[in-house]
Design a protein around this nucleic acid. Structure first.
Length: 486
DNA sequence: CCCATGCTGTTTAATCTGAA
DNA sequence: TTCAGATTAAACAGCATGGG
């Protein structure tokens, strides 16, 4: 008996399903931070239930699915017309329907997703749901309930506005006929030996597989999979033709300029330096240099007025100001976790950034987008905010343009790739020393800060946030200084 | 999970060429 | 002058990458 989620997993890759059943110990430990970051499903599901009030909820209990199924059966028999988390074991599959609503003689199904649109894989999900339920109930329509990221909170949450309901019945009905066949295929596969399925795009699409580290253990750290901006299908084509290492690549293979440099520097072990490209970047900067970086949080359900679902909310920045005489000054802002951090941030940011000198960000489109949003939402400061935008310079540019390429970048121009390659063994610039090591962790830490009861604990985390963000801009300063020396 | 950007590959439109 | 066929340019879509 498969569950719906197992079936969906099996659609993506049979081997993954087989491993889950027979070799669960090979599953990667769920990455704690990754796990927490977008674990909003429960909250979203509970809120969506309010769209159909007055129903009865089946309590989820992984130990006793049979009880849940029996409760569901009983509720239906009793004439209850709205059921949350209704459980079914039917047609060879165990499935739970987020919301079931009696509509005359038929039942309508609502699947709640915390995404902001209907995704391709939602159809398969719903098709299994349909197959599991249709034996027991006469079904009417099936819908995806998802978030509406255009909804702007003002005062109390408006549940109707927060969600969008899409009827996907027509799409689902084209898929249901195929479900029993796939199901039988999977049941048979699970009884047989481990399926021999090669690595492929299914390892990450539509979801990243928990067994990837197992299936990918023979792929070296430096391989064709690190070739910059190469289409994934093309990478797998190379790999399956036995072209794994750069030295395997035939000279006839067309490569982009970056890819060619990757291959060449990997074999020489020497970085590539094109001084003119670096000089063009450095000469374009105006002192004092403002190295600037935002941290933002993002949540499915907006907490504050003016906030939309998944909106990037700036709550912190770090700013290193480097003067022409070498003087380096650090400024920072970290908002209060109990209220909208943006209003105070805007005021201090405009003051700290002054009126003169380049503003340097890494991948500036992120910072510029946030500033444009702040200008839109805080009209009083709109001119001051918009004036900042033309001062921006992007520190990633000289690298992407191959002014400096180190083989240890391994095909990535992210700041977290550049830093250890350019400053190995420099404890001052080592993110691994920090409690918060990347933007995702920062985002999660702040979003959850207000829920922590212990003020000392909150202070510890606030200090970790300050340390992290400070290092981001200090890293930019050091990178700039090393470019300047070229 | 979201979004902006910029690269890549493909499709469509525009332009050029050479032979009738 | 005309037009098929070839070549080049522009437009578009999809994907990869970066940030959080």
């Amino acid at each position: 008996m498969l569950s719906k989620s197992q079936y969906i997993r099996g659609l993506q890759c049979h081997k993954s399903l087989w491993l889950l059943k027979h070799r669960p110990e090979l599953r990667a430990k769920p990455d704690a931070e990754e796990q927490a970051l977008f674990d909003t499903g429960n909250t979203v599901g509970d809120l969506a239930c309010q769209l159909f009030p007055g129903g009865v909820e089946i309590k989820f209990d992984p130990q006793s699915f049979d009880d849940m199924i029996e409760q569901t059966r009983q509720l239906i028999a009793d004439g209850v017309e709205v059921i949350y988390e209704a459980a079914f074991k039917q047609n060879g599959i165990f499935a739970m329907a987020d919301i079931l609503v009696k509509n005359g003689d038929v039942w309508d199904v609502y699947e709640v997703k915390s995404s902001t649109s209907v995704k391709g894989y939602h159809y398969n999900d719903a098709a299994v749901q349909w197959v599991a339920l249709s034996e027991v109930l006469t079904l009417g329509r099936i819908h995806i309930v998802h978030l509406n990221n255009q909804y702007i909170r003002q005062g109390e949450l408006d549940i109707q506005q927060l969600f969008t309901i899409d009827d996907i019945t027509a799409n689902v009905l084209t898929l249901v006929d195929g479900v029993p066949e796939y199901l039988a295929e999977m049941e048979a596969m699970l009884k047989a030996d481990e399926p021999q399925i090669l690595i492929g795009t299914h390892c990450d699409d539509p979801h990243s597989c928990d067994f990837k580290s197992h299936c990918w253990q023979d792929v070296p750290d430096v391989s064709v999979f690190n070739l910059y901006r190469m289409n994934a299908a093309k990478k797998f084509d190379l790999y399956h033709r036995g072209i794994v290492q750069y030295t395997d690549i035939p000279s006839t293979e067309p490569l982009s300029s970056v890819q060619r440099i990757q291959v060449e520097t990997a074999s020489s072990g020497q970085p590539l330096i094109q001084p003119q490209i670096v000089k063009d970047f450095v000469d374009d900067l105006t002192y004092p240099l403002h190295f600037f970086d935002f941290e933002t949080f993002m949540e499915a359900i907006p907490r504050f007025d003016g906030q939309k679902p998944f909106m990037q909310m700036p709550f912190q920045y770090s700013l290193h100001i480097l003067h022409e005489n070498g003087e380096l000054i650090h400024k920072e802002y970290l908002g209060d976790e109990f209220s909208d951090p943006r209003p105070d941030l805007v005021v201090q940011m405009i003051q700290d950034l002054g009126e003169q000198g380049s503003i340097i960000a890494f991948n500036q489109s992120f910072e510029i987008s946030r500033i444009k949003e702040l200008a839109r939402d805080f009209k009083d400061y709109k001119p001051g905010l918009l004036e900042l935008i033309p001062r921006f310079k992007d520190l990633i540019v000289p690298f992407r343009n191959l002014g400096y390429y180190h083989p240890d970048f391994n095909g990535s121009f992210s700041i977290k790739s550049l830093l250890p390659a350019m400053f190995p063994n420099d404890p001052e610039l080592d993110y691994k020393q920090l409690d918060i090591q990347n933007g995702g962790m920062a985002m999660d830490a702040f979003a959850n800060l207000s829920r922590l009861k212990d003020p000392d604990h909150r202070d510890t985390i606030r200090q970790a946030l300050l340390d992290y963000c400070r290092l981001d801009t200090l890293a930019m300063v050091r990178i700039y200084q090393s470019l300047h020396k070229i």
